[in-house]
Nucleic acid binder design. Structure first.
Lengths: 225, 225
DNA sequence: TGGACAAGATTCGTATACAATCCGGAGGCC
DNA sequence: GGCCTCCGGATTGTATACGAATCTTGTCCA
């Protein structure tokens, strides 16, 4: 394959997608030389990409130790979903008011892709797409600043799911997204807001946030690392 | 003076404060060699710091052109204040519920410092402190994730003020912050939320967001650069 | 057998070198 | 006189080099 010119943004993006799709589990060491080798760039650009991901809380940068895929604590998990509950319902309301046929179509295509991925057994990709669905909704609300924040929260949610999700089978059988599109199509802002709110609550309550994975046993560490 | 060891985080922080205090106006070119010279570090660490600031939207990184202090558009200005209005009132409510005597004292000390700076004629510092006051409130709410988002919005607000503020004299004579502390001290969450909401609206409406500085005349550009 | 220590190997942090790109002005042409 | 072109200087983008910190592993001793 032809060697493509790649910058730090592309490196960060590819790593972010891999993390989001659970191909890089929390705690994974991201060796600079290794990553550079894979993408055909020097450590300089790899480091820039890793720093970008660190700012998004997707990786942990430990001085003189290297970069690791982040492992959100229980506390952080709660915070992320609190933040989402604060911001996303209002955003969904705003999106419902602004959505035209083109936007609705795009959302439906998005869900279509998600279903297709699920059918192929590519759970990781399906999870990724079900996350970015929220990004699309935020984009429709036409508030770039908040959309960016939501995108970060969605990414972090993916890490939280990797750590604290219990019943992965029931992944996205829920038709919450379909219902939301319906409300948006009807321009029913109240309903859209309510649906988003309950959808997030639903996600949150299906996590097992009792305690453990925050301080993983060093033994477990060794086995998984 | 002893040469202190400084990393990219410190560089970013010092530049951020300078921007926040309006010592580096929007559009200012941040030459890598020059900044490195000032802090006694190589371009490598300067670049890392600049990238961090770019992620916070405090500087604009233009490929092959360099780093410039950001010039938020009118649209961006609106978005930032919309986001703040969405997030900060709820945060103030939460802070009011959690604030104990220690927190109240810290806030009062903060305001004290702001008044002192104003008395010394250091308007930039006063502006900086009046901004970070909001960060302190967010910290009391004990929601790190949202607090970080607010901190970014506050920084960007400082740039917006630099570009679109009209009556700078009336800077912070308003006693909105004092009133907020009062409500928090009484544990009056409703009042704290309402005060924060009106305070932000007040700020927003005192901006002149009619149009211009978004697409600055190239002539003006040349004069200011 | 188990733990503590030390030397080697690995990996990160920072500085520097070199190539690519952009800006500005001199000169020429219309 | 105005505009275009081209070249020199300056600045950024990327790779590499080297010192510093950390991790590994093998050995010694209790």
């Amino acid at each position: 394959m032809a060697r493509q010119v790649i910058g730090s943004a592309e490196v960060a993006e590819k790593l972010a997608v891999a993390i989001h799709e659970h191909r890089l589990p929390p705690g994974t060491k991201l060796n600079e030389d290794e990553v550079g080798e894979i993408f055909g760039v020097s450590r300089t650009v790899v480091r820039a990409g890793l720093q970008q991901l660190a700012h998004q809380h997707l990786v942990d940068l430990k001085r003189n130790r290297g970069a690791f895929v982040a492992k959100p604590s229980v506390r952080e998990a709660r915070e992320v979903f609190e933040a989402r509950s604060l911001v996303e319902p209002t955003t969904a309301r705003s999106a419902a008011r602004r959505a035209g046929p083109a936007e609705i179509a795009r959302l439906r295509a998005h869900i279509e892709a998600e279903h297709a991925a699920l059918a192929e057994g590519d759970d990781g990709r399906a999870l990724y797409l079900s996350g970015t669905f929220h990004n699309e909704v935020a984009r429709i609300a036409n508030q770039e600043t908040i959309a960016e924040f939501i995108a970060q929260l969605v990414s972090r949610s993916s890490l939280i799911i990797a750590l604290y999700w219990e019943r992965r089978a029931a992944l996205c059988e829920s038709h919450a997204h379909d219902a939301l599109i319906g409300a948006m199509e009807r321009g029913d802002a109240d309903e859209a807001e309510a649906l988003m709110k309950s959808h997030l609550l639903d996600l949150y309550t299906s996590l097992d946030l009792r305690d453990a994975p925050a301080q993983p046993k060093t033994l477990k560490e060794a086995l998984s690392g």
